[in-house]
Amino acid sequence: MDVKKTLDPFPGQVHQSPGGGILTGTLDDVINWARSNSLWPLVFGTSCCAIEMMSTASAKYDWSRFGFEVARATPRQADVIIIAGTIVNKMGPVLKRLYDQMPEPRYVIAMGACATSGGPFFYNTYSVVKGADHIIPVDVYIAGCPPRPEALLHALITLQAKVKSGAPREKISIPELPKPSAS
């Protein structure tokens, strides 16, 4: 994907007039533009991928260039959870609870082989969940063990493109389950 395209300027037009300008645009586009440029990640790392995630946050790779600077230590203030590491069966309920506590719209990135599929070396184990998408829905997957910071940045920019495209999760309808009959 073309990264430059995702760095679009403000999605609207400014009409200059005496005493100030008038700004026109679609409200949805403006909201998505604002959301995508201020995605606050949750501080969440369960193994070695978290080291790469910290590296991506630090000065050399600096994900704040793309609007991810404020990593929150509480899910109530976070927009995106980066699952950086192995999810074991005992961690499953914790991950679900963190996800449930995040305000909508919320986004999920599965970082690395463990989060996408259970991992290359922990796969044949009694204790590991074979992919975080067994627990919560995932927006963007990253391959690698662990992925390089560039790969994480690419995933974050991909997520931005997804948000900007105007199809966030709340627009995907969940079909209602049939109600059990009284008999």
């Binding site: 044949n124 184990t125 009694y126 204790s127 590991v128 074979k130």
Partner: peptide, 10 residues
């Protein structure tokens, strides 16, 4: 140890 759900028998 056997766990037929999570593990592949080698």
């Amino acid at each position: 140890y056997e766990d037929p759900i999570n593990m592949i028998k080698l």
